[in-house]
């Protein structure tokens, strides 16, 4: 039963196209910039016609940037690797810790349970600058400054609350009777958690993991303060393109394109789970 007229449908199509254009344009423009030299980017008026060059990408991959003022060493590939390492490990640690915790919060009532859950959530909305100073002091005395372990630990402030609260909601939506039935069938609580609760909450776990990964990937301030060049992710590493001889727009654009690819690939992969989760919910019962 579709009562929308042809006119309405055309209008809707145009409006949607405008929205997509609005949001996609900067990304499209950055993609174009990444194939241009600084000169052709900065010319007036700007143009979509240019001779493409791979110099920006080559400079990033080889780690050598040639500017008007001479040659400069770049850490970009190291930064990219740091980002991958920090984000994946942080999310993995947060999943190992957060999923069982979310299950506990969803299924059991215990003393101070709600308070603990709320405190964990508060890490998400407390401004990071608030904890940075004490953290950097602690890290110094613990010898964690400029270590991967230290950063992964701090990244739990980002990942753990997200995973805990999203996955908890998914666990709460599962009928406890399904788990009871599995226990009665002869399985221990841990087997039930592994074979029933986790598989059924998997779409939620995937969504939470993906979000946590994106938030970790995009983090700037923790790594800026707590790590130095060799441990820093791309977000901080991109600062290197602001050089004494000017801002290297072409290389920034190429760096952005390369640093977006992992999140993009992951989102494409996890989308299957997200959509699966939605359709599973639609026929629940």
């Amino acid at each position: 039963m579709d009562h929308t007229s042809t006119f309405e449908r055309i209008l809707r199509g145009i409006l949607l196209a405008l929205v997509v254009l609005f949001f996609m344009f900067p990304i499209f423009w950055i993609l174009l910039m990444s194939f241009q030299t600084n000169e052709s980017i900065l010319r007036m008026p700007p143009s979509v016609f240019f001779t493409p060059t791979f110099d920006n990408y080559i400079a990033l991959v080889t780690g050598e940037m040639r500017t008007a003022a001479g040659s400069l060493q770049l850490n970009f590939m190291q930064n990219l690797w740091n980002s991958v390492l920090l984000s994946t490990t942080s999310v993995a640690v947060a999943l190992v810790l957060g999923v069982p915790a979310a299950y506990a919060f969803a299924r059991f009532k215990f003393r101070l349970g709600e308070d603990i859950a709320f405190t964990l959530l508060s890490f998400r909305f407390a401004p990071p600058l608030l904890v940075l100073l004490p953290l950097s002091l602690y890290f110094k005395s613990l010898g964690l400054t400029n270590t991967y372990i230290g950063l992964i630990w701090v990244y739990q402030l980002i990942c753990l609350p997200l995973i805990l609260w999203i996955v908890r909601g998914y666990f709460e939506d599962l009928s406890p009777d399904i788990e009871h039935a599995h226990r009665i069938a002869g399985y221990s609580w841990f087997q039930t958690f592994r074979k029933i609760a986790v598989p059924l909450a998997l779409p939620g776990i995937a969504a939470a993991g993906l979000l946590a990964f994106i938030f970790s990937w995009n983090n700037f301030v923790f790594a800026l303060v707590l790590a130095s060049a060799d441990k820093q992710p791309v977000t901080v590493g991109a600062l290197a393109f602001v050089t004494a001889s000017g801002i290297q727009y072409g290389q920034i654009a190429a760096a952005i394109v390369m640093s977006v690819i992992p999140t993009f690939v992951l989102a494409m992969f996890a989308q299957r789970y997200l959509v699966e989760g939605l359709s599973l919910g639609a026929v629940k019962g």
Partner: peptide, 20 residues
Amino acid sequence: IPPEQRNVGMAFQNFALFPH
């Protein structure tokens, strides 16, 4: 004794089948 060691079978009103 926990449920898995009681040797009981139970059918739930809402069936509680394992959906996956």
